[in-house]
């Protein structure tokens, strides 16, 4: 009896020591609460749309969280996803490239924006907030310049992303795979180690002779590619390249990272946390509509829940900036 008690408490202690534990508890609490207050929440259809709605945001949050872990910030996710999605749509619909190639071109565009961000931060020494603010504005401008504000519609060939395999849409499998891949990269590779090290103490990293600039450039580029995949997912969901896709999503991506237990000061967090954060955000929007809450009040409630969630996450910290 006593032995069992200790092993159980050891298990609990081990779980609580995981950096994903607090976000996971928050998600489970919200999940149970939603299931209790709305009979429609746990339906198969609703669970499927939750996953679909979360897909692009998870990709954005994965990229954003890697950058936040380095102690930088990225404001370009929303615009990058829009531009990448647009270029991919143009390539296939206007220039007649095969869809796979067009999608790769889109990802290339995302990587390019990420590369430019990385170079701006490291070589031009522009603070990441400003550098990515510039690319956010410029990329959105390019999208509007090319489209004149109207969508490119009649997109074909994106069905694969919304088609289902083993009961879930392929884009859901895709974001699960990318979450695992990002987790592996950050936790098991030297690149990941350097990311945490830069976020923890960049001076020390530089004094120890590591090339921090190259790591930053690489991470910004990877993040840009992840945003581009989010853009392709939105293309599939809308069957159109919509110029305002992802407008304001950078804030959702940052909020998802913070809700996932990633500290804005850098060096701490897990990509699984940002995935959970993105899921929490999607869930809140969903349950408020299921309940038919007044649209204006929805924003108030959302803000309140975010505040409370953030409060529980920072419990026990000595101080925050």
């Amino acid at each position: 009896m006593g032995l069992k008690g200790t092993s159980l408490s050891a298990l609990v202690r081990k779980f609580l020591s995981l950096e994903e534990s607090k976000p996971l508890v928050a998600l489970v609490v919200l999940y149970l609460a939603s299931a209790v207050i709305s009979p429609y929440f746990l339906t198969v259809y609703n669970q499927k749309i939750l996953l679909l709605q979360a897909s692009p945001l998870v990709m954005l949050a994965l990229g954003e969280s890697m950058i936040i872990m380095m102690g930088s910030i990225d404001l370009s996710p929303g615009s990058t996803m829009a531009l990448a999605g647009l270029i991919a749509a143009l390539a296939s619909n206007v220039y007649g490239f095969p869809v796979i190639l067009s999608a790769l071109i889109g990802v290339g565009v995302g990587a390019l924006i990420g590369l430019v961000n990385g170079l701006a931060v490291t070589k031009a020494k522009i603070p990441s907030f400003v550098a990515t603010l510039a690319s956010m504005v410029a990329a959105r401008g390019l999208v509007l310049l090319v489209t004149g504000g109207t969508s490119i519609y009649g997109l074909a060939g994106y069905e694969w992303l919304t088609d289902e395999t083993a009961g879930l849409a392929n884009m859901v499998w895709l974001f699960i795979a990318f979450t695992a891949l990002t987790y592996f990269t950050l936790k098991k590779t030297t690149l990941g180690l350097k990311v945490y090290a830069i976020g923890g103490n960049e001076e020390a990293v530089r004094y120890s002779g590591l090339n921090a600039d190259n790591v930053k450039i690489a991470v910004f580029t990877i993040a840009g590619s992840l945003y581009a995949i989010a853009g392709l997912m939105m293309n599939a969901r809308l069957q159109a390249a919509y110029p305002w896709t992802g407008y304001g999503s950078e804030l959702d991506a940052i909020a998802a990272s913070v809700l996932g237990g990633i500290q804005l000061t850098g060096g701490v967090g897990s990509p699984v946390g940002s995935f959970i954060g993105a899921y929490i955000l999607t869930l809140i929007s969903n349950i408020l509509i299921l309940l038919g809450v007044n649209p204006y009040l929805q924003w108030v409630v959302k803000g309140f829940i975010l505040g409370v969630a953030a409060l529980t996450l920072t419990r026990g910290l000595r101080y925050v900036k």
């Binding site: 749309i49 939105m234 919509y242 305002w244 992802g246 969903n286």
Partner: peptide, 11 residues
Amino acid sequence: RRDEALSKMES
């Protein structure tokens, strides 16, 4: 917005 309407209508 089209993307917002999609998510809201789904819910």
